[in-house]
Design a protein around this nucleic acid. Structure first.
Length: 422
RNA sequence: GGAGACGUCGCAUAGUCCGGUCUAGUGCGCAUCCCUGCUAAGGAUGUGAGGGAGCAAUCCCUCCGUGGGUUCAAAUCCCACCGUCUCCGCCA
């Protein structure tokens, strides 16, 4: 939900945002009109209601002789009050309906346009020249098979397409990677969390995942619960309806969870291997920050992501995602994309979003300030996921089909420095 | 799954039977000030959230788990739901 007061103060900002996203700027004026109507109706209702309350109290206090007259007067007001209330409620509903679908206002400076209009901020590390090294690149599917690390065939047998087993060193590599991520987060001051992956509709809606991409989400009809695609949802819901004290700086959580995605509409994309799957694991950073600090915190999250990528020694680039590709809750998003030798291109391995107050308004997460309370900013960013295994296997493969383990992960693999088949 | 108890403005509680004086009381905690001269005690005032009017003091509306209903009037009566706790059963 966006900030209506800010919208009143500077509607142009929201119009520009809509243009950058490829949305309809006229929607801003629809919102303003609905808001004005709502406030007028509410004032009307409140005035009538005050009269009614006074009249009702009079009935209770009236002397027996006056009681009948007082009662008659009080009764005569009831219909008007009811009508005014319905008007006010209706205006509120109309406003909420439009507001619910209105995406966050993008941060000034965000590249306009759609999926392909991202701006590359930097490239870090150099992709290996496998031709110069004298061997052909294997993709992660082949490597996973050789190493006995990934079993997609049996994943499909048991659960269907886009499911997989991590086996042997594959399983160990994932645990090592995620543990390394948790440890890095803890060292940086994050509170580690293992979160619920089934959440209520209110939490799912509050985080903005039931907007345009609602069909991406698994829903358990019988229980009216949603399977989350990221621990961001549970971490955002954690402080719902709470008033936080952020005077000592942002609250930071590192969530570890399984993640579930329907991948509807991605038929034919990344069908092989484990790049795009229905279930995976992720360590996610999540920050609650004062709005003034949000942009700065966003860059810190990005820096922690890059620190983690450096640990696993992957070449990557950082992109500033264009407004139209942001998703409804984000005001800005940076992705890190690791180089995939088998595809000869960069693929997303992290994503960090500044949601400003969009989620906090819906979830009722505020902070106390000298003058009262106000919504906080929420931010999230990937620290490691199952998909990283793809990049690690491919980038660190050796001529004999074995895979070198990045040094930072070796302690988590009992000192193992090379993954070999068996 | 079965039985019972309970959900009130930070925490703890009063209020609910019998609707109006609840415009939600009290204690603790907290804040400011006063007194005191000091690892004490006492006193005064204030102290939930959201929305709105006003330069301001201040005032108005909504919220007593959630949503409906009855009524001139609901914390209080009715219905449904959610949650918590205790005991039992079943299962990791």
């Amino acid at each position: 939900m966006i900030d209506l007061k800010a919208l009143r103060d500077d509607p142009q900002l929201a119009r520009d945002s809509q243009l950058a996203r490829g949305g309809d700027p006229a929607l801003v004026d629809v919102l303003l009109n609905l808001d004005e109507l709502r406030r007028a109706n509410l004032t009307e209702f409140e005035q009538l209601r005050a009269v009614q309350k006074a009249a009702s109290r009079l009935v209770g206090k009236a002397a027996p002789a006056d009681r009948a007259a007082a009662l008659e007067y009080a009764r005569s007001l009831a219909d008007q009050v009811r009508a005014a209330q319905e008007l006010a409620d209706g205006a509120q509903r109309d406003l909420d309906a439009v507001l619910a679908d209105f995406p966050n206002v993008v941060e000034p400076g965000t590249p306009p346009g759609g999926e392909n209009d991202y701006v590359v901020l930097r490239e870090v590390g150099t992709p290996r020249d496998f031709a110069a090294e004298g061997f052909d690149v294997l993709d992660h599917v082949a490597l996973g098979e050789r190493l006995g690390a990934i079993d997609t065939a049996r994943g499909a047998k048991v659960s269907g397409a886009r499911f997989y087993y991590l086996t042997g060193v594959g399983a160990r590599l994932e645990l090592a990677l995620l543990m390394a991520a948790v440890d890095q987060a803890v060292a940086a001051g994050f509170t580690p969390m293992i979160t619920p992956t089934l959440v209520k509709p209110s939490v799912m809606a509050g985080t903005g995942f039931l907007g345009a991409h609602a069909d991406e989400v698994y829903r358990l009809e019988a229980d009216d619960l949603y399977l989350t695609g990221t621990s961001e949802v549970a971490l955002a819901g954690y402080h719902a309806d709470e008033i936080l004290d952020l005077s000592a700086g942002p609250l930071r959580y590192a969530g570890w969870s399984a993640c579930y995605r329907r991948e509807a509409g991605s038929y034919g994309k990344d069908t092989a291997g484990i790049i795009r799957v229905h279930q995976f694991h992720k360590v996610e950073m999540f920050s609650y920050a004062p709005v003034e600090d949000a942009a700065e915190e966003h860059l810190r999250l990005l820096a922690w992501e890059e620190e983690m990528l450096a640990k696993v020694e992957l070449p990557y680039r950082v992109i500033d995602v264009a407004a139209g590709d942001l998703g409804s809750s984000a005001a800005r998003k940076y992705d890190c994309e690791a180089w995939l030798p088998s595809q000869g291109r960069y693929r997303e391995v992290t994503s960090t979003s500044n949601c400003t107050t969009f989620q906090a308004r819906r979830l009722g997460t505020r902070e106390r300030t000298a003058t009262g309370t106000r919504p906080v900013a929420t931010l999230n960013g990937t620290l490691a996921t199952t998909r990283w295994i793809v990049a690690i296997l491919e980038n660190h493969q050796q001529a004999d089909g074995s895979v070198r383990v990045p040094e930072a992960l070796r302690p988590y693999l009992g000192g193992l420095d090379v993954l070999t088949g068996r």
